[in-house]
Design a protein around this nucleic acid. Structure first.
Length: 223
DNA sequence: CGCCAGGCCGTGT
DNA sequence: ACACGGCATGGC
């Protein structure tokens, strides 16, 4: 899938951010939110000098909420971001570098324990901000996998479902590409979003899906 | 106007 | 364990 999508779409240049902390901010802000809206919040944060850990720490909660308002859920997300900085300060001396040097499994568990951090956000931070080789499962990948009969269709999206999709992705890469997983996971997730947007929103758009000459449109699936 | 977006969480069954 | 609604805003 990675190779087919890469051939069709080319490099996606993810994550669109300059610093690790900017990736983390984006990972929180883009939860169920279009990236376009996130860009406006990020611009606000940049203008306020809050694109760094120190900058964000010095903001009041209210001020932070105001700055990230354009990307929605600002009350929850502002709280969550403050809690992330608190974790960084309390357990890693305020250092993203120290945070990044923690073992992957323990770090993932610690991130998941934070409010506002679920599986996808945790993995996005691990992969795109901290450089850990973890795959990212998301709604797009689930749709694509089901559409192409790689995953048994399941009605709800349970946490367990995402964890199993994560495991399957990791195993698939482990079998076919033993090396450079971080780079492949990085590109694959970006490509997944690209093809998901282009072809998996509506069944009619699957005609020229790069993943298959014969798209599996027979089995319905409304999305 | 209605639907959706690069999810997560609390609550009820 | 799973389903379901709330969270907020802007694009299209």
């Amino acid at each position: 899938m990675h190779d087919l999508l890469f051939e069709a779409y080319g490099p996606q240049h993810w994550w669109p951010a300059k610093t690790r902390f900017e990736v983390i901010l984006g990972a929180y802000l883009t939860q169920n939110t279009s990236w376009k809206a996130v860009e406006r919040s990020l611009a606000n944060l940049r203008a306020a000098g809050a694109m760094t850990v120190d900058g964000l720490r010095s903001l009041t909660l209210r001020k932070l909420q105001l700055l990230i308002q354009p990307s929605g859920f600002h009350t929850r997300k502002a709280h969550a971001l403050k809690k992330f900085v608190a974790l960084l300060d309390d357990e890693f001396a305020g250092s993203l570098k120290k945070l990044a040097s923690a073992p992957t499994a323990a770090l993932r568990a610690r991130l998941l324990a934070l409010p506002g951090v679920g599986p996808e956000t945790a993995d996005a931070i691990l992969l795109y901000a901290l450089g850990h080789p973890v795959p990212i499962a998301d709604e797009y990948l689930r749709r694509i996998a089901e559409r192409h009969r790689l995953l048994i269709p399941a009605p709800g999206h349970s946490r367990k479902g995402y964890e199993s999709l994560t495991t399957l992705t990791r195993q698939a890469f482990a079998a076919d590409a033993p090396k450079s997983h971080a780079r492949l996971f990085n590109e694959f997730h970006a490509l997944t979003v690209a093809v998901g947007k282009a072809h998996c929103r509506r069944i009619a758009q699957c005609a020229d899906c790069p993943l298959a000459d014969d798209p599996h449109t027979a089995g319905d699936q409304s999305r």
